[in-house]
Structures are given as C-alpha cells and as structure tokens.
Amino acid sequence: VTLFVALYDYEARTEDDLSFHKGEKFQILNSSEGDWWEARSLTTGETGYIPSNYAAPV
C-alpha cells in the first residue's frame, strides 16, 4: 500500500476531485494520470482525484 500525506489544504474544484486538509493521509489508487492521482482518504474513506504536488510519501 502506497501511503501519502497532504502537504496543504485543497478544496475540490470538480465533483471528481477530493477535498482534503493538510496532514490527511491517502492511499494512492492510480498515479498513472500524470499530475492528478486517484486517491482514497484514510480519514473520510472518500475517493477522488488529488493534485500530486500537494502530497508526499509517508
């Protein structure tokens, strides 16, 4: 399992994006889409796309 942590807060701009807060942890589901990764929040259980430059490996 690849775990990442949010470096900044992010507010979803589309219904496919995932809103999150700094410090929140994610499981990365798909990182082959370039700058946007499909991720599941370990806090909320929700799935959506996150900007890859807002996350770092745990």
Rank of each mutant, 00 (worst) to 15 (best):
N53D: 11
N53I: 09
E46G: 07
T43N: 09
P57T: 05
E33K: 14
P57I: 08
L29W: 06
T44I: 01
A6Q: 00
G23P: 00
E15P: 14
P57Q: 08
F20L: 05
V5M: 08
V1T: 13
D17E: 15
E46K: 15
L18A: 01
L18Q: 01
H21E: 09
T2Y: 11
Y10G: 00
D17F: 14
I50L: 04
Q27T: 10
G23C: 08
L18I: 10
V58Y: 11
R13K: 13
L7E: 04
K25L: 15
D9K: 02
E24F: 04
L7V: 06
Y8W: 10
G23N: 05
A56G: 08
W36C: 07
K22V: 10
Q27S: 07
E11G: 05
Y10M: 02
V5I: 12
A12Q: 06
A55Q: 04
Y49Q: 08
W36A: 05
V58R: 03
E11I: 13
Y8N: 06
P57Y: 05
G48T: 01
G45M: 07
R13V: 13
E38N: 07
R13Q: 14
A39F: 02
I50Q: 00
A12P: 05
S32D: 11
T47Y: 08
A12L: 02
A55F: 15
S31W: 14
L3R: 05
S41F: 04
A12R: 07
V58D: 09
T14Q: 10
Y54P: 02
E33W: 10
T2S: 10
Y54T: 05
S31K: 14
K22S: 06
L18Y: 04
T43E: 14
E15R: 10
Y49L: 14
E24N: 05
W37H: 04
N30Q: 09
W37I: 09
D17S: 13
T47C: 10
D35S: 10
E11D: 10
L3W: 11
G34D: 13
E33D: 15
W36S: 06
E15D: 13
A39M: 05
E33I: 11
W36E: 03
E33C: 15
N30C: 11
K22I: 08
E11P: 04
L7N: 04
S19I: 02
E15V: 11
E24C: 05
D16P: 04
D17T: 15
L29D: 05
L3M: 10
S41P: 00
A12T: 03
Y54V: 06
L7D: 03
S19G: 07
D9E: 06
S19M: 03
D9I: 02
A56I: 13
V5R: 04
W36N: 05
D17N: 10
G48Y: 04
E11Y: 09
F4C: 09
D17H: 15
L7T: 04
P57G: 05
E46L: 15
W37P: 00
L3D: 07
L29G: 03
S31A: 14
V58W: 11
A56Q: 10
V1G: 14
T14D: 11
E46S: 09
E46H: 12
L18E: 01
W36G: 03
F4N: 02
D35N: 09
K25Y: 15
A6K: 00
K22W: 04
P57F: 06
I50S: 00
S32E: 10
E38L: 15
Y49N: 08
R40A: 04
V5G: 01
F26N: 00
N30V: 08
Y10R: 03
E46W: 08
G23F: 04
Q27R: 08
R13N: 09
V58G: 05
E15I: 11
E33R: 15
S41C: 06
F26Y: 01
I28L: 07
D17M: 13
W37E: 00
R40E: 05
E24D: 15
T14E: 09
D16M: 14
E33F: 12
G48F: 05
V5S: 03
W36M: 11
V5C: 10
F20C: 03
R40N: 03
A6M: 05
S32R: 11
G45V: 01
P51F: 05
N53T: 10
E11C: 13
R40F: 09
E33M: 14
N30P: 04
W37G: 00
E33Q: 14
G45R: 03
F20A: 00
Y49M: 14
A6W: 02
T47L: 09
A6V: 04
T44N: 06
S31T: 14
A55M: 15
D9C: 10
S32V: 11
W37N: 01
K25S: 06
T44C: 04
G23W: 04
D35Q: 10
D9L: 03
R13T: 13
Y8S: 07
V5D: 03
E46D: 09
F20D: 00
N53F: 11
D16G: 15
A56C: 10
K25P: 06
I28P: 02
N30A: 09
S19L: 02
H21P: 06
V1R: 11
Y8V: 07
